[in-house]
Design a binder for these strands. Structure first.
Length: 888
RNA sequence: GGGCAGUUAGCUCAGUUGGUAGAGCACCGCCUUCACACGGCGGGGGCCACAGGUUCAAGUCCUGUACUGCCCACCA
């Protein structure tokens, strides 16, 4: 007998051992020269500052399932790991650390601060990597990358310079989103709009010619000093006479024109709009369209500038209060009402974002969008498809991408300005002198690039671009990008643009967008709400495989995941079930692998059945993973292991294992060994640790050593094992067993109490089948005796059932509740009657019989016949039983 | 305002081309059966949100309604 595993699966030691084994053996570091079709995935790089959360856990699990499966299929698999420097997020974290020391970043100065961030990264950057490893991710640690490492930084500079030279990067004064807390510009999609309660003030703008007033509605009175026009709809009769005239800005007194633009919504507010081009995105457009004056009155710290006249020096909030009060005194305030409207917040620190005009760098994504649009789904497919529309919509409405950030942590923009002649130099390396005037007084641009700029190069920069590396030719483009839909725009769309532009090829063939992980009541998990389920804690409590299986089983396409701890606990039971199935197997196998049996000629319905089922599951699981139907794959494994292999097969072979007949025992041992082996391979991508451990314990041929399951190929198909007819016959045996069990349970007979069973088969063929498999029924139904025949003399006082036309008769002896059996039969017959009526209605429907496919009609006819037969037999059995009752 | 999902057993969710409604957990019985009580066996529980339509046949396809959630958006 082989080594016996511990009774309960204890994940921790097993996980540590295998993780170490895989790392030390570089099992997942592929050679570009190795054979096999290329398969590659780049990790969505987590923030260096980050800690692993459930979103990562889901993402990494799914990618790992794909990678391990691809390896099994003989592909040459590269999974590139790495982290993102996460500009604003990381800078904020380190600033908070400094704040605890009572310092600000400006106290340190730029260089010292950046040093400090690097130092911080040295200390804490490993945490997230360890956590990725803890999840069992089969990444190639030799190819670990960081968005700010030397190679990637060089790639960033090269891309920047080339795009600049091609006119796809430009610098200019535009209105952007400004976070006064982070003190930087933000891209459009870094602003989160949230409904907030605000107020709508109505201010009077008097016409300079005294011919009247226009009342204007605003939510931001503090911008009044920056007004350079009032705008109405060109067809609005109320204001037609005012167009072209001038009005006086309240309190300020400055004269501004009344202009007309169809953009104005006549129904909203008063139908008149004040235009502040420097402090509102729409007004910026209006200002450009109508060539208005651009007057900036709020600075980047949220303080009113000198241009704000009497309000200079006040904060935005102070200015708002004062200007409202002043208008009231001046009688220029018409009213105030409450208003619910969307206000933009910084996605990193949640401060209200201020539209702000400043000099920034932009990528002309408006020019790159059409190609990115056209390539999907032609060159790259998105799963689930429903995201396609969203992708198109975003590209169709895209604006140029503001890439400069006024922070210190990140890739510094490779642009220098000559202090003497003003020449702007954009170059990959710092120039020594100005090419125009020869001056060496060159000053580099203070800004750094948006984090997503370097992320957008990730699929090729991690593989060594711009160098012509083996990795690039072997593994670019990548096979699939797996990520949450929340970064479709931030990341996926931009990677597509950059990949197309620089590699002339899409960066991935497929995009699989998975759901967001939410808590049990559907809320987004977040630290502040305190509803976070920590993956590492779950791994500690239930084991990594249980967590991974849970996430895989939940990952149905296009749906959010509501995770609860109970569910993980539930799947821990599944892991344990597998473990114990393996223990049973080991207890019943010899030291070395059992002698092979010819599966073409193998006898024994139960063997034929389980081999048949195994073939089905192999094929189905394979195609489920090919289609990214992760939940189906998990479900298939679950059901096969538990409901077929454990519940039936292991029970069915117990008598074989006790048998004196050596051939019979050895056949069972071989099939058992083979099915468990392959099942363990199938489950390995989802549950790598427990399966690797079991694999290693399974006996192998004399003189051989158990290998590493991670290197084991997917089991080849065995078409000759597909035996649908035998599998169907198995259902009769199972039906008989279940019927006896049900009778026992419902009549209060102890399951372990052995009863006699009489079978009255439907025909001779059935009788032969039953006779052949009497052993199976004897054990699983726990029978004392089993008699069968067409002319059996059954005692009247018997419980009965009908399965596939076979009458099942269990003579009742002793203190059995006879009335209970009558009730049970009645219930059974009621159900039969209901089904039969349903089928008959269908069959008596002329158009069904004539229009439905013949095979469907045939199936219904057969079913009707069977139901009628069962009813007839049960009626007779019930009548006999009633007689017995009466005789009592 | 536009777009996209979801609405199936008490709870969380499956349900691949339309063809007899499923799982896990929870619940109710019975069981110390020699792999597993993280277990076994059996059972109860559903007008598949609502209203129409297509079809011999609809949880599944179409239209509309309601509610929930998400994304996008330049109504101040």
């Amino acid at each position: 007998m082989a080594d016996i595993l511990p009774k309960g699966y204890e994940p921790h030691d097993v996980e540590v051992r295998w993780r170490t084994h895989w790392e030390e053996n570089k099992t997942f570091s592929p050679s570009p020269d190795a054979p096999g079709e290329s398969y590659s995935i780049v990790i969505p790089p987590p923030n260096v500052t980050g800690a692993l959360h459930m979103g990562h856990a889901l993402n990494l699990t799914l990618i790992d399932v794909l990678c391990r499966h691809a390896r099994q299929k003989g592909k040459n698999v590269l999974w590139v790991p790495g982290t993102d420097h996460a500009g604003i997020a990381t800078q904020n974290v380190v600033e908070r650390v400094l704040a605890k020391e009572g310092k600000k970043r400006t106290d340190l100065g730029r260089e010292a601060f950046v040093q400090r961030v690097w130092q911080w990264r040295e200390e804490y950057g490993h945490r997230i990597l360890k956590q990725i490893a803890a999840l069992g991710a089969s990444v190639d640690w030799d190819r670990l990358r960081f968005t700010m490492d030397e190679g990637l930084s060089a790639a960033v500079r090269k891309v920047f310079v080339q795009l600049y030279n091609e006119g796809l990067i430009y610098k200019g004064d535009y209105i952007i989103n400004w976070c006064s807390r982070c003190h930087t510009a933000l891209a459009d999609d870094e602003v989160e709009h949230e409904p907030s309660k605000g107020r709508l003030w109505k201010a009077r703008y008097e016409l300079t010619d005294g011919s009247g007033t226009i009342v204007v509605a605003t939510t931001r009175p503090e911008t009044i000093p920056g007004d350079t026009a009032v705008c109405v709809h060109p067809e609005d009769a109320r204001y037609a006479a005012f167009i072209g005239k001038k009005v006086r800005v309240p309190v300020i007194g400055r004269e501004v024109p009344v202009i007309a633009d169809a953009y104005v919504e006549r129904e909203f507010g008063t139908g008149a709009l004040k235009v502040t081009p420097c402090h509102d995105h729409n007004d910026w457009l209006l200002g450009s369209r109508h060539k208005l004056e651009f007057l900036q009155v709020i600075d980047e710290d949220g303080i009113m500038k000198t241009e704000a006249g009497p309000y200079a020096g006040l904060t935005k909030q102070e200015c708002r209060e004062k200007i409202v009060a002043d208008m009231e005194v001046a009688g220029l305030l018409e009213g105030v009402e409450d208003l619910e409207h969307a206000v933009g917040h910084c996605y990193r620190c949640h401060t209200v974002v201020e539209p702000h005009v400043s000099t920034q760098w932009f990528v002309a994504t408006t020019k790159m969008a059409p190609a990115a649009r056209a390539a999907v789904p032609a060159a790259t497919q998105i799963f689930p498809e429903s995201w396609l529309k969203t992708y198109y919509h975003w590209l169709d409405n895209i604006r140029d991408w503001c890439i400069s950030r006024q922070i210190w942590w990140g890739h510094r923009i490779p642009a220098w300005t000559c202090q003497d002649c003003g020449r702007l130099i954009v170059a990959e390396e710092a120039p020594d002198v100005c090419p125009d005037c020869g001056s060496s007084r060159l000053v580099q641009d203070e800004d750094v690039l948006d984090t997503w700029f370097s992320s957008s190069l990730w699929p090729f920069s991690t593989m060594g671009w711009p160098d012509d590396t083996k990795e690039l030719s072997r593994w670019y483009p990548t096979s699939v990008l797996v990520t949450g839909f929340d970064i479709l725009f931030f990341w996926v769309a931009r990677m597509i643009m950059m990949g197309q532009h620089f590699m002339k090829e899409m960066p991935f063939r497929h995009v699989y967008m998975h759901a967001l992980v939410r808590d049990a009541s559907g809320r987004k998990m977040s630290k502040s709400t305190g509803n976070v389920i920590d993956p590492l804690e779950m791994i500690n409590k239930y084991g990594c495989d249980a967590l991974r299986f849970t996430l895989t089983a939940f990952a149905a396409m296009g749906r959010d995941i509501r995770l609860s701890e109970e569910r993980i606990e539930g799947y821990r039971h599944f892991v344990n079930k597998l473990w114990n199935a393996a223990r049973f197997t080991l207890m019943n196998l010899p030291e070395t692998a059992p002698q092979a049996v010819d599966l073409h000629t193998i006898q024994g319905l139960h063997h034929q059945w389980i081999l048949h089922r195994l073939e089905c599951v192999k094929a189905e699981m394979d195609s489920a993973l090919d289609d990214y139907r992760f939940n189906d794959a998990a479900q298939l494994g679950y059901k096969f292991l538990w409901n077929e292999f454990c519940d039936w097969y292991l029970e069915l072979i117990k008598p074989d294992m006790q048998s004196e007949d050596v051939a019979r025992r050895e056949t069972a041992q071989y099939v058992l060994w083979l099915v468990l082996r392959e099942l363990v391979i199938l489950l390995h991508p989802i549950m790598p640790f427990v399966t690797a451990e079991i694999w290693q314990a399974l006996p192998v041929a004399q003189g051989q050593k158990a290998g590493d399951l991670a290197l084991e190929p997917y089991p080849a198909a065995r078409p000759h094992c597909l035996r649908p007819d035998e599998a169907a016959r198995m259902e009769l045996i199972q039906g008989v067993i279940v019927a006896v069990r049900t009778i026992k349970a419902e009549l209060g007979i102890s399951p372990s109490h052995k009863v006699s069973l009489l079978l009255h088969p439907a025909d001779a063929a059935q009788q032969a089948l039953l006779e052949e498999n009497r052993g199976l029924m004897l054990t699983l139904a726990r029978l004392e005796s089993l008699d069968m025949g067409m002319n059996l003399e059954a005692p009247k006082a018997s419980a009965s059932a009908v399965v596939q036309g076979c009458q099942i008769i269990v003579p009742l002896r002793g203190a059995v509740d006879l009335a209970g059996e009558l009730a049970r039969l009645d219930k059974e017959m009621q159900k039969l009657e209901k089904d039969l009526t349903g089928v008959n209605i269908k069959l008596s429907n002329e158009s069904f019989v004539s229009r439905a496919p013949a095979e469907v009609v045939e199936r219904e006819r057969a079913r009707a016949a069977q139901l009628a037969d069962a009813r007839e037999k049960l009626t007779a059995l019930r009548a006999r039983f009633a007689e017995a009752l009466a005789e009592e």
